Computed example of a mutant assay.
Amino acid sequence: MPLKNTPESKKRQSKPKFSVTPEYVSRIYFLLRKEFGDVNSPLHYSQDYQFAISVILSAQCTDERVNQVSPVLFAEYPTLESLAEAPLKKIEKIIYSTGFYKNKAKSVSGFANILLKDYNGKLPKTIAELIKLPGIGRKTANVVLNEIHHISEGFVVDTHVKRISKKLGLTDQSDPVKVEKDLMKNIQPEYWMDLSLYFIFLGRKYCKAHKTFCETCILRKECPSSLVLKTGESK
């Protein structure tokens, strides 16, 4: 007599749940390090505050576009003081092509003024302080801490990181704050700084939002979402 399709039988027949282990995370890290090597932010800057402003401009905009626009902005206003005094209309005109230029111009101006007034022009070294600055949210604060101060107080979560983290089984959340909490729980702290950039580079090269290249991806034998079996055959 066949077994009834009860919740108990379904539970017995279900596949074991994928589990994240430190060894799994380490394999991912070293494979990505082999693929991408030493990584740094692709944004160009010469002063610490310029990097923070470039990150503000990068919201909903490509790094390539920001790298075209930011040199013009910093050439026109070469000091934090001059940027703080710059007319909003002129900032808007320069950064127009980055999108959301009115809000970004207000953020850039406000950031420059508050950084000068409250922090003597020096970028704070904690997320709690950084997010008090105009235009700086938790993600931006994490990026600044990583790049400028080499501090990993959290895990940078952008659209690429959120997508890749789900595919790798590191989270099942969609809210960036919850995704970050999962990543901080599942990933060893010494990997936080590099893995956020590695996930971004992986998302741009192999695991795009609308198309994946599992056959050539460096993680094809590790990723639980891979369309390639460990034998190399397609599922």
Results as ranks from 00 to 15, higher is better:
183 L>A: 04
183 L>P: 01
183 L>Y: 00
184 M>C: 06
184 M>N: 00
185 K>I: 10
185 K>M: 12
185 K>C: 09
186 N>S: 07
186 N>C: 06
186 N>I: 06
186 N>Y: 04
187 I>H: 06
187 I>W: 04
187 I>A: 05
187 I>D: 04
188 Q>V: 00
189 P>L: 04
189 P>D: 06
190 E>Q: 09
190 E>W: 00
190 E>D: 10
190 E>N: 05
190 E>S: 05
191 Y>N: 05
191 Y>R: 01
191 Y>M: 05
191 Y>C: 05
192 W>G: 04
192 W>M: 04
192 W>Y: 05
193 M>W: 03
193 M>N: 14
194 D>T: 02
194 D>Q: 03
194 D>C: 01
194 D>R: 04
194 D>G: 00
195 L>V: 13
195 L>G: 11
195 L>S: 10
195 L>E: 09
195 L>C: 11
196 S>T: 05
196 S>R: 07
196 S>Y: 09
196 S>A: 15
197 L>K: 06
197 L>A: 00
197 L>M: 07
197 L>D: 00
198 Y>C: 03
198 Y>T: 05
199 F>K: 03
200 I>P: 09
200 I>L: 15
200 I>A: 12
200 I>N: 12
201 F>C: 10
203 G>I: 14
203 G>A: 13
203 G>K: 13
203 G>P: 13
204 R>E: 10
204 R>I: 09
204 R>C: 08
204 R>K: 14
205 K>T: 11
205 K>W: 03
205 K>D: 06
206 Y>H: 08
206 Y>V: 07
206 Y>Q: 06
206 Y>C: 07
207 C>H: 02
207 C>A: 02
207 C>F: 05
208 K>V: 07
208 K>T: 05
208 K>I: 06
208 K>N: 08
208 K>P: 03
209 A>L: 10
209 A>F: 14
209 A>G: 08
210 H>W: 10
210 H>M: 12
210 H>A: 12
210 H>E: 13
211 K>Q: 09
212 T>M: 01
213 F>G: 00
213 F>N: 01
213 F>R: 03
215 E>H: 04
215 E>L: 01
216 T>K: 10
216 T>F: 01
216 T>H: 04
216 T>N: 07
217 C>F: 09
217 C>L: 08
217 C>K: 05
217 C>R: 07
217 C>S: 10
217 C>Q: 08
218 I>C: 10
218 I>E: 14
218 I>W: 01
219 L>V: 09
219 L>S: 15
219 L>E: 11
219 L>Q: 11
220 R>I: 03
220 R>E: 06
220 R>H: 11
221 K>I: 08
221 K>Q: 12
222 E>N: 09
222 E>S: 11
222 E>K: 01
222 E>L: 14
